[in-house]
Design a protein around this nucleic acid. Sequence first.
DNA 1: GTTGCCATGTAAGGTGTTACATGATTTA
DNA 2: TAAATCATGTAACACCTTACATGGCAAC
Lengths: 183, 183
Amino acid sequence: MSIKQAILGFLSWKPLTGYELKKLFVESPTLYWSGNNNQIYKTLVELHNEGLVTRQVQLQEDHPSSKLYTITDQGLSALRRWVLSTPELPQIRNSFLIQLAWADLLTPDELDTLLANYEEEIHMQVAMLQTQARRKVIAPERTPREAYLWAMIAKHWLSFHENELNWVRQLRQELDELETGKE
Amino acid sequence: MSIKQAILGFLSWKPLTGYELKKLFVESPTLYWSGNNNQIYKTLVELHNEGLVTRQVQLQEDHPSSKLYTITDQGLSALRRWVLSTPELPQIRNSFLIQLAWADLLTPDELDTLLANYEEEIHMQVAMLQTQARRKVIAPERTPREAYLWAMIAKHWLSFHENELNWVRQLRQELDELETGKE
DNA sequence: GTTGCCATGTAAGGTGTTACATGATTTA
DNA sequence: TAAATCATGTAACACCTTACATGGCAAC
């Protein structure tokens, strides 16, 4: 249910069309889920019905007409209420951990290539997040505090993946020691 | 779709009933999602139809009859194939980060209590994971390697939450400095 | 006497993913 | 000539959550 709040959040920054919102969602690591048409366009209709946003249709030459959504006062206070609500624990779903749980079925070599694949994927993700952080993605920076919060959100993602990298590297090394120690 | 594999995994350890599987799922931080009747009982029927498990009905006095599921050779090789498949990146959904993104709507005090709440929740989670690790939850330990893998899976969860704690503590402190520096 | 354990399952609804549909314009 | 961008939306399906239903027995 937090896609509603996320949309209200972006609209509290500036009026946007569904299409622009979609791009913001897809580009954001925190929100890339829910970044699909189905949810965004449906949710915008709901928000409009609830009076939390207003809609202006813009007719364009050469392009399909777009709908610009603007947050209302009601929308702003709903957003504020949600931002104040008690936070939930993060959810992680790591199917790789389930794979690992049964990886004793594999030979040492098979297991090591599996781990190497995972390490490589995480490594690429870290690299991607770093370049993304460098080219300073669009973000509201209305106050120093807001700029800082957004920087810390980006940092959160980086540090999660770095942590993951360290973990898998340690795993590979210790498994290697376990194998060589056996001989 | 990894609930199928998770169930096959547990059954590769030993034959289990749906009820026992459910408990294993609910108690596992890695798998607690999907730990509901709806998915488990449905999936067991599917696995049975696909010939990956066999089923023995056990009539009991004083209790409802239970169904014991045993993995077949086909099931084992399906599991092995899946364990070998290229791993996916972990998915994290942290609605708290979205709250934070728009937390510039709040006063410094409101923001700090929000962060304090989150810190407290994470802290409790860490404590829970630690006691859980101490009382050594049921786990297959057929080889030293398997025991090590399961220990590292548990460690993964701990280290994620410890990382989260550090992050939120840093955030609180630096926000505090930002505020006091302003005066 | 209410709660919890055993043990199966169903129902309803919310959330998320993937793919499709339209149709003109620009870019490789 | 194939693809990407703009811009809206629909359809089908998979996945997940919550709650309900049954019914006896044991514990507090």
